[in-house]
Write a protein that binds this DNA or RNA. Structure first.
Lengths: 170, 170
DNA sequence: ATAGTCATGTAATGAGTTACATGATTGC
DNA sequence: GCAATCATGTAACTCATTACATGACTAT
C-alpha cells in the first residue's frame, strides 16, 4: 500500500489537486514509485473517505485541492518509522540472465553489453540532473540528493557488473 | 508477462510438474521473480492452451509433468533477445527517503542505519551462498554466479550508500 | 475561434497475494 | 495407522495499466 503513502508524503509538502500530484509523481517520483492518473484519483477518494486527507478548497474546472489531516500525517510518520520496507524487487533484466544459456553465447554477450550501455546512459543522465540540484540545504534538497545518489551508485554498479558479466560468458 | 517466461525458462532445463516448479521458484528465483502456487498453476494452464508447453507424462496423485514445446522454446528465445527489460523498479525503501524530512532527524538517521545493517546481512548471506556455488563451469553455474554477483554488488552498494546517507542528514 | 492545458473521472483487463479446499501416496 | 509430503486447483481481493470519456478555462 505504498501509493497511499506516496500521496500522503507529497501532500505533507502542502495542499495539492490530483492534477498537481500527477505532475509531482511524473517529475520526482517516476523512477521510485510510478503512478497513473486513474490510480491517483481513486486513491485520493479512498484517502478522503479514510479521513487522511480532506478537500481544502475548490477551484475552477471542478478542481479539488486536497490537504493532509492530522491523522494523515500520523499515518505517514507511522509508515516511515514503524513499517519495514518490503523486499521484493522483481527484475526481468536479471531474470533473463538466468536463462541466457538458451541462446548462442554471442547473443548472451550482446545482451549484457546492451545492459551495460543502458546503465551508462542512466548514469550520464543523472549526472546531468545533479548539476542542477547541486547546492541547497533545504529538506527537499538533502533527501532529494540522497535519493539521486542512490540512482547514481546503482547505475554505476550495474554498468560495471554488466561489463564484468560479459567477460564471464565463455 | 515475465512469470510466463520464468516458467518457460525453467522448463527449458527439463520437464517438471507445477509442484516441482514451485520449489524451483522458491530456491532459485525467489529474489528475482517470486511466484505463488496459485499463480503457477494458472499460468501452466494458459501456457498449455497457448501451445508453449504440453503435458508429457501423468504420474500418481494427478501429477502432470509439463514439457516445453518447440514454440515454447522459440517464445523464450524471442523474449530473451528481442524484448527490452522493463525499467520500473519500485522501491518503497527509497520512497521513504523522499519523505524522511517529516520525522525527527534522529529517526531519519536510525532508518538509514537500519537499512545499512539489513544490506550488510544480505551481503553476508550471499557470501555464504557463494562458498557453495563456487566452481563449476556448466551453464547454470556460470549464469547463476553472474546473478549472484549482481546481488552481492547491489548489497554492498546499498550498505555503503546508506552509511554515506546517514552522514548527510544534518 | 481555437488550441493548449487544466481537471476529473469510469471501465476493462491483467498481475499478484492470501486463504481456502481437497485428496493421494509414501515411509515409518 | 498416521504424519509428512506430494499434488492440484478455486475464490476473493488488491494493485497497476491502458483506454475511454467529458468538459471548463485561458491566452492568443
Amino acid at each position: 500500500m505504498s501509493l497511499r503513502h506516496a500521496v500522503l508524503g507529497l501532500l505533507a509538502q502542502g495542499p495539492a489537486s490530483g492534477y498537481d500530484l500527477m505532475k509531482m509523481f511524473d517529475v520526482s517520483l517516476s523512477h521510485v514509485w510510478p503512478a497513473t492518473q486513474s490510480q491517483l484519483y481513486a486513491e485520493l477518494g479512498k484517502l478522503a473517505e479514510a479521513g487522511f486527507v480532506d478537500v481544502a478548497t475548490r477551484g475552477p474546472r471542478g478542481r479539488k485541492e486536497y490537504a493532509l489531516t492530522e491523522e494523515g500525517l500520523a499515518e505517514l510518520r507511522h509508515w516511515l518509522t514503524q513499517i519495514e520496507p518490503t523486499r521484493v524487487a522483481r527484475s526481468d533484466m536479471l531474470l533473463r540472465v538466468f536463462f541466457l544459456a538458451r541462446v548462442p553465447q554471442e547473443q548472451a554477450r550482446a545482451y549484457l553489453r546492451h545492459q551495460a550501455g543502458l546503465a551508462a546512459e542512466r548514469v550520464e543522465r543523472l549526472e546531468g540532473v545533479r548539476e542542477f540540484v547541486e547546492s541547497g540545504d533545504d529538506d527537499l534538497s538533502v533527501y532529494g540528493r540522497i535519493a539521486l545518489e542512490y540512482g547514481l551508485r546503482l547505475g554505476r554498479m550495474q554498468r560495471e557488473w554488466a561489463e564484468w558479466a560479459e567477460r564471464q560468458v565463455p
